[in-house]
Computed example of a mutant assay.
Amino acid sequence: MDHGPLLIGTCSDIEVVGAITAAAYTPDETNPNSFCTGYELSVDHSWEFESLEQQLAVIAYLRTLPLNISE
C-alpha cells in the first residue's frame, strides 16, 4: 500500500498535505530522515482544501487510523 497508515505515520503534516493535494510527498526540511521523502505514489489524485481547518481535520483523522502491522 503506497500511502497507508504505516507510511503516513512516519510523514510530517507538510508531507501528508503534499500527498493529498499534489499526489506527491512534499519535501519537509524539518523532517530530513522521513521515509516519505522521494517516495512516489502509484496513484494520481489531488484534492483541494477549502480552508486550513479542513486540512487540519483531515490530517487529524489520518493520525487516528490504526497501524495495520500484521500485513
Rank of each mutant, 00 (worst) to 15 (best):
M1H: 10
M1K: 09
D2Y: 07
H3N: 12
H3K: 07
G4W: 02
G4F: 07
G4R: 00
P5N: 06
L6R: 07
L7H: 02
L7K: 00
L7S: 05
I8T: 07
I8N: 08
G9H: 10
G9C: 10
G9W: 02
C11A: 10
C11M: 03
C11Q: 02
S12V: 08
S12M: 05
S12G: 15
S12R: 03
S12N: 09
D13K: 05
I14L: 14
I14A: 14
I14S: 13
E15K: 00
E15W: 01
V16W: 00
V16M: 04
V16Q: 01
V17H: 01
V17G: 03
G18C: 06
G18L: 03
G18N: 03
I20F: 00
I20Y: 02
T21V: 07
T21E: 06
T21H: 04
A22W: 02
A23W: 02
A24N: 11
A24G: 13
Y25L: 04
T26I: 08
T26M: 12
P27R: 00
P27H: 00
P27M: 02
E29W: 07
E29N: 12
E29V: 15
E29R: 11
E29S: 15
T30D: 11
T30I: 05
T30R: 03
N31P: 00
N31H: 08
P32C: 09
N33V: 05
N33P: 00
S34L: 04
S34F: 01
F35C: 09
T37A: 15
T37Q: 12
G38L: 00
E40K: 03
E40I: 14
E40C: 05
E40T: 15
L41V: 10
S42K: 12
V43R: 11
V43H: 14
V43D: 13
V43K: 14
D44S: 13
D44E: 11
H45L: 08
S46V: 09
S46K: 04
S46D: 08
S46F: 06
S46Q: 07
W47K: 06
W47G: 13
W47H: 15
W47I: 15
W47Y: 15
E48Q: 06
E48N: 10
E48C: 08
F49V: 06
F49G: 05
E50C: 15
E50R: 08
E50Y: 11
E50T: 12
S51W: 02
S51I: 06
L52A: 15
Q54K: 04
Q54V: 03
Q54A: 15
Q54W: 01
Q55M: 09
Q55K: 08
L56Q: 15
L56M: 11
L56D: 13
A57G: 11
V58D: 05
I59R: 01
I59E: 01
I59L: 13
A60F: 06
A60P: 11
A60H: 14
A60Q: 14
Y61H: 13
L62Y: 05
R63P: 13
R63C: 09
R63E: 09
R63Y: 09
T64S: 12
T64I: 06
T64V: 10
T64A: 07
T64C: 08
T64G: 11
L65V: 14
L65E: 10
P66C: 06
P66K: 02
P66W: 01
N68W: 04
I69L: 12
I69W: 04
S70N: 12
E71K: 10
E71R: 10
E71P: 10
